[in-house]
Design a protein around this nucleic acid. Structure first.
Length: 519
DNA sequence: CTCCGATTTACT
DNA sequence: AGTAAATCGGAG
């Protein structure tokens, strides 16, 4: 079962918080708020009544909008003790004090190791790898929205009965209490090669996959269509492009700055002996397979869905363990190139830049991404100098920013799917089998020359089927023997005309002379 | 914590 | 048909 969406959970907490605030005294309020902001808040004791489960929440009528309540939520706990401003990309220290990620990193870089508020020492692990408190970021966003004097209406959907059943077909799945890998139903109706966001109309809940939605593992993520492969980090086809990637921290020199990151291609690693750990880069990566797919997405300026896993250990933008696999929105690939990796072999590198309408889970702003202006980040420029060979740049941009609407979207039509769409009512296996059967039947009974149903079917010795009239028309005007006597004025022996099968090019001249209609 | 077998899918 | 894939969970 999928974990409830982050924004739902957050909203419920915020709503509950605001409701509680009205019945609490100041000391209790402060305590509750601290719990909320530190991310240790236990499940609110709100009943899942139908109205609470699926309904709309009008924030204009929310108490958070009142001036008195604004002061309670915009108090110093939301402010960074280093810059005294509202936290941007907030991190929460184990001592429960909050800072901007940038301020905190500067503080640590200056060699300071204690909290400016309470003087407690920061644990080394936290100092070296702070992780953004997305709950607090969301609370700040919500507070800002509540402050806004417009009729912002947010639809809240919590409907557990819509969640998929888990499927168990192997002993292992039963033993572990987990669905087999990828055996769960695909809940969305998009095909595997769908580019761009998962829209509301493809989602049985009617919401679409929203930024901040999270799942307990890759299998659940797959069921909701954000990223289909259950192990692989890149979803794509070498002929079409890549639809999605997962950031999981598998590559040492990957760099994650939230709105942009550097991603490494796949392959070139020694996987012999079932080594899934201690993988070593043993040969150069090339722009083929999935790496080619990413390159196409770069060159075509296609949107790529990005999913972050909590296993991404070195990134402040990785989700917490409570949100193991999180959807972070749409990115495009600004550059693609190869450069020497940590072990010397060439690796394919991609510069991802966010282009999403919804605010990032780590953002304290309530808006999505502005179009990227100016130059690439310094770290990217530095790395591109080490690039070997061609540096590919983002080309045509079917997914682009509409300056009038002030939002990202399809400026030109999305690529057409080459696959059968997901089917919310049947298993992917069944759907595929059905698709394959259909495809095979179509091949059996369709003439590739006229694209229609076979009329007077002829089956060639090489096993291909055509309408008799189509095939005869195809070789019209060609005799069976080529008279080459006039060729260049020299006397040449006559030669049998080769008549290649339109499908496989095998010579079917002999067959055409004595062809029979296939009943 | 590390190691490792089981597992399933989709690409080629 | 072969096999790579940025996983998962159990064992030590």
């Amino acid at each position: 079962m999928a974990v409830a969406r982050m924004d739902e959970a957050e909203l419920r907490k915020c709503i509950t918080q605001i409701q509680l605030d009205q019945s609490l005294n100041d000391a209790e309020k402060a305590k509750k708020r601290q719990e909320l902001l530190s991310g240790r808040w236990s499940q609110p004791a709100v009943k899942d009544t139908d109205e609470a489960a699926t309904g709309s929440l009008d924030l204009t009528s929310c108490p958070g909008k009142d001036a008195a309540d604004e002061t309670t939520i915009f108090d110093e706990t939301l402010k960074c003790a280093m810059c005294m401003d509202l936290c941007a990309r907030p991190v929460t220290a184990p001592c429960q004090h909050n800072f901007c990620l940038g301020c905190f990193n500067k503080w640590v870089a200056q060699g300071k190791k204690t909290c400016p508020t309470c003087r407690h020492a920061f644990p080394a692990k936290f100092a070296s790898n702070p992780r953004i408190n997305t709950l607090l970021a969301s609370a700040i966003r919500m507070a800002k929205l509540g402050q806004r004097p417009v009729n912002t209406k947010i639809v809240v959907h919590i409907n557990d009965k819509d969640r998929p059943d888990e499927a168990f077909t192997t002993d292992r799945a039963v033993r572990s209490g987990r669905a087999n890998a990828a055996s769960g139903r695909i809940m969305v109706t998009v095909p595997g090669d769908h580019f761009g966001p998962i829209p509301p109309e493809a989602d049985p809940r009617g919401t679409g996959i929203r930024v901040g939605e999270f799942w307990k593992d890759r299998l659940d993520c797959r069921q909701w269509g954000a990223h289909f492969p259950h192990v692989a980090g890149i979803a794509g086809q070498s002929g079409q492009g890549a639809q999605s990637v997962v950031l999981s921290g598998g590559y040492e020199d990957d760099l994650d700055e939230g709105e942009w990151f550097l991603y490494t291609g796949s392959g070139g690693r020694d996987l012999s002996g079932n080594k899934r750990v201690n993988k070593i880069q043993s040969f150069d990566q090339t722009f083929d397979k999935m790496n080619k797919a990413l390159l196409i997405s770069c060159e075509k300026g296609l949107p790529v869905r990005v999913v972050r896993s909590h296993k991404e250990k070195r990134s402040a933008y990785a989700p917490s363990e409570e949100q193991p696999v999180r959807y972070d929105g749409i990115y495009r690939i600004a550059r693609a190139y190869r450069k020497p990796g940590t072990q010397g072999q060439l690796v394919c590198r991609y510069v991802f830049i966010r282009c999403e309408n919804e605010p990032a889970p780590w953002s304290s702003e309530d808006s999505g991404d502005a179009p990227w202006t100016g130059s690439l980040p310094a770290a990217v420029q530095k790395e591109i100098k080490e690039a070997k060979g061609k540096v590919y740049e983002m080309g045509a941009k079917p997914w682009d920013y509409d300056a009038e609407k002030k939002e990202w979207g399809w400026a030109r039509p999305a690529p057409v799917s080459q696959k059968q769409g997901g089917d919310a009512s049947s298993s992917p296996k069944k759907a595929r089998r059905k698709a394959n059967e259909h495809e095979r039947a179509m091949r059996e009974f369709t003439c590739t020359l006229c694209k229609g149903i076979l009329a007077q079917p002829l089956s060639t010795p090489c096993g291909h089927h055509f309408c008799k009239p189509c095939l005869l028309t195809n070789f019209q005007g060609q005799g069976d023997i080529e008279d080459r006597a006039t060729n260049a004025g020299r006397a040449l022996r006559e030669r049998k005309v080769v008549k290649p099968c339109p499908t496989c090019k095998a010579d079917i001249a002999e067959f055409l002379q004595h062809g029979q209609v296939n009943r």
